[in-house]
Computed example of a mutant assay.
Amino acid sequence: MKKIILVAFFFIGLSVSQAQELKWYTDVKEAIKVSNKEKKPLMLFFTGSDWCGWCIRLQNEVLKTPEFNKWAKESVVLVELDYPRRTAQSDEIKKQNNELQQAFGIQGFPTVYFANANVSKDGKVNFEGLGSTGYVAGGPTAWLAVADPFVKKPALSPEPTKAKKSKKA
């Protein structure tokens, strides 16, 4: 009987640990600190969470799947930049999101932008763009096939060496 209870607790614990929600940052400067510490790029998700049909579809078909969850934990720091119509936001978040929308030239939703970033000593944020995408039909496999190359650093291959020819006298 004790073994059955222990096995049951083990599987419950395993399922709870796998079901952990991803951490989505809304404060870009906080996300940048985490990004630099973990040496992972930012995934900036520009969304209209309560009105944009394609944003909601991307959420349901990709961003809430176990495949995306696993990939995101290993690959990126998640940032949600929301432009809701019915959900209240602080003035600070609205200002930050509007500035980033202009800085990245975002004209439609959803847009997902991948970038490395740092904050200079004078408080300015500097971004290095890695690429962008939006909704991709085909579920998480298709979406990740588009997104993954933006965050994977190419392996450095050694410079080819030329063999020296020896001269015989």
Rank of each mutant, 00 (worst) to 15 (best):
Y135E: 02
G139M: 06
G129I: 03
N118F: 12
Y113K: 07
E128F: 05
N116M: 07
V136M: 09
V125E: 06
L130E: 01
G123D: 02
G138Y: 10
A115W: 00
G129P: 01
L130H: 01
N118H: 15
V112A: 06
K121R: 13
Y113P: 00
Y135N: 06
G129E: 05
G139E: 08
G131C: 08
S132R: 14
G129C: 01
A115R: 09
A137P: 00
G139P: 04
V125S: 05
P140C: 09
V136S: 09
S132Q: 14
D122K: 15
T111V: 07
G123S: 04
N118K: 15
V136Y: 03
A115V: 04
S120W: 02
G138T: 13
T141P: 02
F127C: 07
S132D: 08
F114G: 02
E128R: 15
G123E: 02
L130V: 07
G129S: 12
T133C: 03
F114H: 04
V136C: 06
G134D: 07
G134E: 06
T133L: 08
N126S: 13
G138I: 12
F127L: 05
D122F: 06
G139H: 10
G123P: 01
G123C: 02
D122S: 14
A137I: 04
P140K: 13
V136I: 15
N116E: 11
V125D: 04
